[in-house]
């Protein structure tokens, strides 16, 4: 798959690489120090670490007083992100199809409405959502914040999926219908496989944004039983009494590892455009 890139004959590449390296050096250095600082101790004012230590990673096996257990928090984050992803993938794969293909009443209105909702900054809704959740008893619960996050991200997912469905040729559906399949069967076993890259993309985006979501869990589910990693992390730095920069960085690294894993596993699905069978 990965073709070896040939050096271009038109111009030499090393000045470009040099320029890009200089520009990105601060970022690379910062990431490097993010990791180095978690396993070393450095004397104040120095840049060179002087001793190796694992004490910044203590949070993994001991729970500090007044803080929730890290594994509970991780589990919460995982539940939160996967649930949001599931809801978004399920709903947008169906809603996108309906908006793309079916002649439902009010289709234009829905399309415009979804677009407006997508453009709406979610922060402006947060007080209203807070009140609603409290009234229906979902405040400080994972379900509540999952529903809110999924609802806010759904418009983008629906639009993306509609775009993918729009590229599926009508003939495939016609062929399915004359082959005797019901419309649902056509969607399920003929059309859905054609939009797999779309589902992968929407799922990946949903998971990553849910994983890094901060403001909604912070406001709607701050309790220690339902805390997610982003809230945990911010509580860590907000705690002036036990300020520990090393631990903060270690939690940060811990927090981004799953993101890196997910990306490493799934990014090829984004590139891999499914090969179509019909010519012309």
């Amino acid at each position: 798959m990965a073709e070896k890139s040939q050096p271009s004959a038109n111009y030499s590449t090393w000045p470009v690489i040099l320029a890009l390296s200089i520009v990105s050096a601060p970022l690379v250095l910062m990431y490097a120090y993010l990791f180095i600082d978690t396993i070393t101790d450095t004397a104040a004012g120095s840049l060179i670490p002087d001793s190796f230590t694992l004490r910044h990673w203590r949070f993994l096996w001991e729970t500090p007083a007044g803080k929730p257990n890290i594994w509970l928090v991780t589990l919460n984050t995982l539940i939160f992100a996967t649930s949001v992803t599931t809801v978004i993938v399920l709903v947008s794969s169906m809603a996108g199809y309906v908006l793309s293909r079916l002649n439902v009443p009010g289709r234009g209105f829905f399309l415009a409405g979804v677009m407006v909702l997508h453009a709406f900054p979610s922060v402006t809704l947060i007080i209203a959502i807070f009140i609603v959740l409290q009234m229906i008893g979902l405040y400080n619960s994972l379900i509540g914040v999952i529903l809110v996050k999924a609802a806010i991200d759904l418009p983008l997912g629906i639009w993306l999926m509609k775009g993918f469905y729009d590229t599926v040729p009508w003939e495939i559906e016609m062929a399915g219908v004359v082959d005797g399949a019901s419309r649902f069967r056509v969607w399920r076993s003929l059309v859905l496989p054609q939009v797999r890259p779309g589902i992968m993309a929407v799922g990946l985006f949903s998971f990553l944004t849910a994983w890094s979501e901060f403001i909604l869990p912070q406001v709607l589910a701050p309790g220690s039983k339902v805390q997610v990693l982003s809230v945990y992390l911010s509580a860590l730095i907000a705690d002036d009494n036990n300020f520990d920069f090393g631990t903060f960085k270690a939690v940060g690294v811990f927090y981004i590892i799953p993101v890196l894993i997910v990306y490493a596993l799934f990014h090829k699905y984004l590139m891999n455009i499914y090969g179509g069978g019909s010519k012309g």
Binding site: M174, V177, A181, K279
Partner: peptide
């Protein structure tokens, strides 16, 4: 009758084979 109940075979110009 809907298409499903008509017992017809259709060959489309683009063939409309199921790619997967």
């Amino acid at each position: 009758l809907p298409s499903q109940a008509r017992n017809i075979g259709v060959v489309f110009q683009s063939y409309a084979l199921y790619p997967h």
